[in-house]
Amino acid sequence: VKKMAKAIMADPNKADEVYKKWADKGYTLTQMSNFLKSKTAGKYDRVYNGYVIHLD
Rank of each mutant, 00 (worst) to 15 (best):
K43D: 06
D45N: 08
K25I: 14
T30L: 13
V52S: 09
K6G: 08
E17C: 11
K21E: 14
K6L: 14
N34M: 14
V52N: 04
S38W: 05
H54T: 03
F35T: 03
G26D: 03
D16H: 11
K2S: 01
Y19M: 04
L36P: 00
I8S: 02
K20C: 04
K3C: 14
V18G: 03
N34R: 12
K43E: 12
Y44N: 04
K25R: 14
N13C: 13
E17S: 10
T30I: 13
M32F: 03
L36G: 05
N49F: 14
A7R: 08
A5R: 00
N34F: 14
G42W: 05
Y44G: 04
H54P: 00
I8H: 03
Y27H: 03
K39Q: 11
A15Q: 07
Y51T: 01
Y27E: 00
N49R: 12
Y51D: 00
V52G: 07
T28M: 03
Y19A: 00
K43T: 06
N34I: 14
D56F: 15
K21R: 12
M32P: 00
S33D: 09
T40K: 11
Y51P: 02
N13T: 15
A23S: 12
M4N: 08
I53V: 13
D16Q: 13
G50I: 05
K37L: 10
G42S: 06
G42Y: 05
V1S: 02
S38D: 13
L36Q: 01
M32E: 02
D45R: 07
Y19E: 01
A7P: 04
K2G: 02
Y44Q: 01
M4W: 10
Y48T: 03
A5D: 04
R46P: 10
N49Y: 14
V18Y: 10
K14M: 14
K43W: 08
G26K: 07
A15D: 01
G42L: 06
F35A: 06
E17K: 08
K14C: 13
I8A: 08
R46W: 15
W22T: 00
A5L: 08
K3P: 05
Q31A: 07
T28K: 02
Y19S: 02
K14I: 15
V52E: 10
H54F: 15
K39H: 13
T28S: 11
S38R: 04
A41Y: 10
K43A: 06
D56I: 15
A5T: 03
K20L: 05
D24I: 09
K21A: 15
Y27A: 01
A15L: 07
K14W: 06
T40S: 09
A23H: 09
N13K: 13
W22R: 00
L36N: 00
D45G: 05
L55H: 01
N34V: 12
K21S: 14
A41T: 12
Y19W: 02
M9S: 03
M4Q: 15
L55R: 02
D56P: 03
H54L: 05
K14L: 13
A10Y: 08
N34C: 12
P12S: 09
Y44V: 01
N49A: 13
Y19D: 00
A7H: 07
K39C: 11
P12T: 06
Y27K: 00
Y27F: 10
N13W: 11
K37D: 09
V18W: 03
V1C: 10
F35E: 04
Q31S: 06
G26Y: 04
S33I: 08
N13S: 15
A7E: 14
Y51R: 00
S33A: 14
A15W: 04
I8P: 02
Q31C: 07
Y44S: 01
G50T: 01
D11E: 08
D45M: 07
K3F: 10
V18S: 03
K37F: 10
V47Y: 05
H54K: 04
K25L: 15
D11L: 04
S33N: 10
H54I: 06
E17I: 08
I8C: 07
K2V: 11
K3L: 11
K25Y: 12
K14V: 13
V1E: 03
I53C: 09
K25T: 11
R46E: 15
K39E: 14
R46T: 14
V18A: 06
Y51N: 00
A15G: 05
Y27L: 07
G50D: 05
K3A: 13
A15H: 04
A7V: 11
D45E: 10
T30F: 13
H54A: 07
A23W: 07
K20D: 04
G42R: 06
D56G: 13
E17Y: 10
M32R: 00
V47I: 13
L29R: 08
K37H: 12
T28N: 07
A10I: 11
K21P: 00
E17F: 10
V18M: 08
L36K: 00
A23G: 05
V1P: 07
K39S: 14
M9T: 05
D45Y: 06
